[in-house]
Design a protein around this nucleic acid. Structure first.
Lengths: 198, 198
DNA sequence: CCTACCGATCGGTAGG
DNA sequence: CCTACCGATCGGTAGG
């Protein structure tokens, strides 16, 4: 049996993720983070260079998790010609990345705005690449006739904000586990993109 | 022709809405708000009692707009026995309230967390009443067979976060006007609640 | 609506 | 990881 001992640096990031999610980056002080770890505010700076570095570490790591998940999906040959399978996998992957670390995911989704300069610009660009995979899957599905006619940009905005909303209400000890939520969201997403009513 | 001269108090709230939306409540100082109005920070206190009062005024006013819109809809006799018509009207109303003042809507949706004590509790309770109208319309539609079988709480969370997401990307000068966006969202919402795929 | 000011708290550093 | 400390900024008040 292996005991996982998280590094102090990682503990700081995890405590920060939880507090940034609850109160936001600006409303959380370095001393708040230190208090959770039973150390003094100044001691945090033995492990991190600045408060924004902590935010960046969380956002960058979480962006990478979303990116790798989506890249692994679109690299599957079976999914290249099947927009429905691709969209299902993208939705399931997105839900999984959120549920595996809902604090970090919330920070990635909402608190990146507190980043400044190049980091802010870089994250915006990476988000756009990621979101484009959803727009593309929608456009492909409309082209193949698997999805109903729709504006891909509007449908992707609708779908991605619904998915990101999970980070606002999900709790690991909630009524539904991550896999059940993923099942529901895949179903709702495919319904969103197909037609029945009227 | 009538010239609308907004009160200073209202100007403060409107500037605050825009800044709270962009940077968040905690990252916006009273001096930031004053600067936009070309007055000194201390002068803001001639019009408001506290920073949290400004937040509360925006959140309370916007909550009331959402509530009145939904109440007018559910009061329509034609809509009582028609969950599809009721849901369509709720979605259209929600989009309209956001688009009419996207700054205030963003603050209502995201920044209410900065409220403390009774105000925070009161807003949470009012949000729950509002959101329950969506859950109820979904449950009614499932019961009548107009909507596909689904978990009403999950479907409502999916739908409401998709709707609230509009406040993060909507711009009055954007590609699509509010009415077009409402058309798209009504369509997407009804698709979400009906079945076709598989 | 202004100037002048208050105590509290912030992010961060020096030196151990 | 600590104590001691820094300048800057915060929400807010007094008195005009």
């Amino acid at each position: 049996m292996t005991l996982i001992v998280p590094s102090r640096r990682r503990e700081i990031e995890d405590v920060a993720s939880a507090l940034f999610r609850e109160r936001g980056y600006a409303a959380t002080s370095i001393r708040d983070i230190a208090r959770e770890l039973d150390i003094r505010g100044a001691s945090v700076y033995a492990h991190v260079a600045s408060k924004e570095d902590v935010l960046w570490a969380i956002v960058d790591r979480t962006a990478t998790r979303f990116e790798r998940t989506a890249e692994a999906i679109v690299a599957l040959p079976a999914v290249a010609t099947d927009p429905v399978a691709r969209m299902s996998a993208l939705v399931r992957g997105h839900v999984r990345v959120i549920a595996e670390d809902v604090g970090a995911a919330s920070v990635f989704i909402s608190e990146w705005r507190a980043l400044t300069g190049e980091r802010r610009a870089a994250i915006l660009a990476r988000r756009d690449v990621y979101e484009a995979r959803f727009r593309e899957a929608i456009a492909d599905g409309v082209a193949t006739g698997d999805f109903a006619m729709t504006d891909p940009a509007v449908a992707a905005a609708y779908l991605l904000t619904a998915l990101n909303g999970i980070a606002t209400w999900y709790r690991p000890d909630g009524r539904l586990g991550a896999d059940r939520i993923a099942d529901h969201y895949v179903d709702l997403a495919l319904r969103t993109l197909t037609e029945d009513h009227r």
